[in-house]
């Protein structure tokens, strides 16, 4: 009987704790532009004004306190809220990381006008855009390894990867890439890998104005271009050979 009661109690309880983990990232879900992009309407802001105030204040405390709950509490205090309001962010410090990623991505989209499609300029555009995004990490670069550790936590990994994918999509769009074949996928995957490695490299870069990161990035992008043109070349060659074979057979009178 008691077991039955217990079961009943657990079942009738609203499943709050279990599912609230699904919205550990403040409000920025699918509305951040994965679907059809309209030019006639502005995208809704990813964070509510309250979240925005607290998280941006918290971010300014990151250089001293790192990506910690302390920074979040300090942020809430600075924005004029009670300490308890950090409960708005069940993800804790991760919400600061997410806030930084989302706002910097959107800032990129806001400040840069999409380049016109010009295949020759795309690699340079991509280089510039990645550097611009990396330079936005400057103020907190000495704490960024903490953020990377949070981003790599298994439960956060889907959100991090999604954010990385959205960033590389944004960069390619702004750079003027209009590929809509399977290359769409490989381009984004390649760019995401290059960006992530450059970001990691930057955390250990002690050179003046991150010159070494710039060189690192240029090398990676060059390698990426080489791989891409090699794979593309092999594909074209195979296509031409197959077409030539079929045409040759046809010219011999074979009915194919």
């Amino acid at each position: 009987m008691s077991i039955f009661r217990l079961l009943q109690a657990t079942c009738s309880k609203p499943p709050s704790r279990l599912y609230s983990s699904s919205n550990f990232v403040p409000s920025c879900g699918l509305s951040c532009g994965r679907f059809y992009h309209s030019y006639e309407h502005d995208r809704p802001p990813p964070f509510s004004p309250t979240e925005d105030r607290i998280l941006s204040a918290a971010l300014s405390h990151v250089p001293t306190h790192g990506f910690t709950t302390t920074a979040l509490t300090q942020g809430a205090r600075a924005a004029g809220y009670l300490d308890i309001s950090t409960n708005l962010f069940p993800a804790g410090p991760f919400s600061i990381v997410n806030y930084h990623l989302v706002t910097q991505r959107l800032a990129l989209a806001k400040d840069v006008t999409p380049a016109r499609h010009d295949p020759i300029k795309i690699p340079t555009n991509i280089n510039k855009l990645i550097l611009r995004r990396l330079h936005a990490n400057k103020a907190i670069i000495h704490r960024w390894q903490e953020a990377l550790a949070l981003l790599a936590t298994p439960t956060r990994l889907p959100t991090s990867l999604r954010e990385l994918a959205l960033l590389s999509d944004e960069i390619l769009f702004l750079a003027g890439s209009t590929d809509v074949t399977s290359v769409w996928y490989t381009n984004r995957a390649g760019l995401a890998v290059i960006y992530a490695s450059a970001e990691l490299f930057m955390t250990t870069d002690t050179s003046e104005n991150f010159v070494e990161t710039e060189e690192f990035l240029a090398r990676r992008l060059e390698e990426g271009e080489k791989i891409k043109s090699f794979v593309g070349g092999v594909g074209t060659w195979a296509g031409i050979q197959a077409g030539g074979f079929v045409d040759g057979m046809r010219s011999k009178g074979v009915r194919i």
Binding site: Y36, H117, T178, V180, T181, S182, W184, Y185
Partner: peptide
């Protein structure tokens, strides 16, 4: 193709 690029829609993965 132009519409997909303009509205930032991904092509099908089964391409």
């Amino acid at each position: 193709n132009a519409l997909l690029a303009k509205h930032r829609i991904r092509p099908t993965a089964m391409y």
